[in-house]
Design a protein around this nucleic acid. Sequence first.
DNA 1: TTGTAGGCGTTATCAT
DNA 2: ATGATAACGCCTACAA
Lengths: 341, 341
Amino acid sequence: MAVTIKQIAETCNISRGTVDRVLNNRGKVKAETEELIRSTAAKLGYKPNLAGKALAATKKNYVIGIILISEGNKFYDDVIKGIGQAEQEITDYGIRILLKTMKGYQVEKQLELLDEIKDKINFLIINPINDDRIIDKINQFSEENIKVITINTDVENSARLCHVGCDYKKSGETACGMLGLLTGGEANIGIATGSVKILGHNQRIIGFNKVCREKYPKFQVTDIIETNDDDVCAFIETQKMLQKYPAINAIYIVAAGAYGVCKAVTEAGREKDIIIISSDKTPEIIKLLREGTIKATICQQPWTQGYKTVNMAFQYLVSSVVPEKELHIVKNEIKILQNLK
Amino acid sequence: MAVTIKQIAETCNISRGTVDRVLNNRGKVKAETEELIRSTAAKLGYKPNLAGKALAATKKNYVIGIILISEGNKFYDDVIKGIGQAEQEITDYGIRILLKTMKGYQVEKQLELLDEIKDKINFLIINPINDDRIIDKINQFSEENIKVITINTDVENSARLCHVGCDYKKSGETACGMLGLLTGGEANIGIATGSVKILGHNQRIIGFNKVCREKYPKFQVTDIIETNDDDVCAFIETQKMLQKYPAINAIYIVAAGAYGVCKAVTEAGREKDIIIISSDKTPEIIKLLREGTIKATICQQPWTQGYKTVNMAFQYLVSSVVPEKELHIVKNEIKILQNLK
DNA sequence: TTGTAGGCGTTATCAT
DNA sequence: ATGATAACGCCTACAA
């Protein structure tokens, strides 16, 4: 049987209350008793019991607030499913979830949501815009004992507990590795990114280029276009690119806009001789994989991102467990027609 | 706040004890009170609270027994890691794990372990040999209220609660799909299976052939050899195969023996023109991927298999939760050099 | 057949 | 600064 607070109290001839005060740093304990308790706790190998903590925590009615830039972005569908699963599992512990969503990268809007949610929550999960005002807000929440975890996108130098997301660079590396295998290592490549202003997209391209350089010297990145994550824009830009560089025989789609890119390729009658690799697994991409226009797509475990993040918030609230790592990086998954699931 | 037993008792003007009896089917309750309690429980939307149950369950000192045919099989390393993680998380609930391992498919040995473990455990997780005597034993455990979950391999018509494992057929399909992408859909293929007597291996081949037939008509499966999951045997058989069928330019390794197969290929100086795809992610396979001899490997989430299974056992013991599905199938993961992790 | 009460481990409140 | 006690939700032994 594991060691309990009660046992520590008994071996020290001290009340459970005092032991609790020491072990949870609530103060108001004489230095020597504190010392005694800490040492015997260590000696006996005390580990707080989650079930007990959880039961006691039900009284507190904790709320986890979540802010996602998810509207109009199918990628987040699975993130939200993961959140939902975790939510189900932790309602037993009296913890609720308050989810706010928004559309597009407007700092003002996100600040507004933050203010709106602040006095209703005990923990914040956010998909932050990389802006100083947002960082300030995160730090402020943190100081007022609303701890923060960032999900999917991170911000530098903030007081967040940790970040849960993917390794964008590795995602790009994997895309290039896949393309290397599918082409025999020789290709003229067009890259369709979302925006050169978005860090994650750039990191993917950096990873892609790295593998090009180190492993596939005959890969030639001929052009990079921006889709602005919009299918129409993607369509137009891809058309232009294919006209300008007819030698292109492979395309790496870094972000959204896959449908537009593929439409331009098929309209040009090039779907047989251009190999396309994409990112993430939206309904459109699934369709394009089924049709054979896209050969493979690199995913980033969206469900797991949502699930894990909520679970870490739960652990913190109930057991004051601070995530052991600052970065929690999910896997890059390669999906082809046969393992789409 | 969620509904509790206490609340149901109060609204029914009945003691908590009686409500507990009804809700947990302990009998000895008048039919009409039972009816009353059940209906109000349903009306109020009662859901048992895990934290409460778990805390009460600590007194019971439950033990989960696990029997794995894992010795000398690196695949299980990650399964056991997943089990370990789950174990850590549930010790808080006073549940322990008792792991027994064995080597090779000897029915007698597994029966022996089953007898040895029986009176020490409250739940059984097993990687069963497909034999009637084992099935009988599983049914017997189940009747004596030691419920069973099968992991990685399943047995038909047994009283197991459910099975956690991979979809071997899809694994073979994915391997073929990958090979299709890497070869342009034209190849002379040699298949190196473990044993034609092992169900999972055969299912992989069935899946592989299915995609051949339906999607890659120019794929030709020229030869199938058995490695008996042994590298030396794999080496010898592969040598013979390559001599007999020099046209072979792709190999699908279904089970263990990858090192032996690859050794034969490199010794024949054919590593540049034979594309090799394997299964699972052992240290040898990682090495061969790094060297470029193997191009891709199809994995089956071993960690998740271990983790999930223990968690389901936990849920059953603490909350009598019977798995909602009879089959819990993990994903087939494609790993190449860049996303090995 | 039903009710009562104490305990699982932790925490919060009130009293000392 | 410390102790005592009740409570979280559930289970169980015992009493009625």
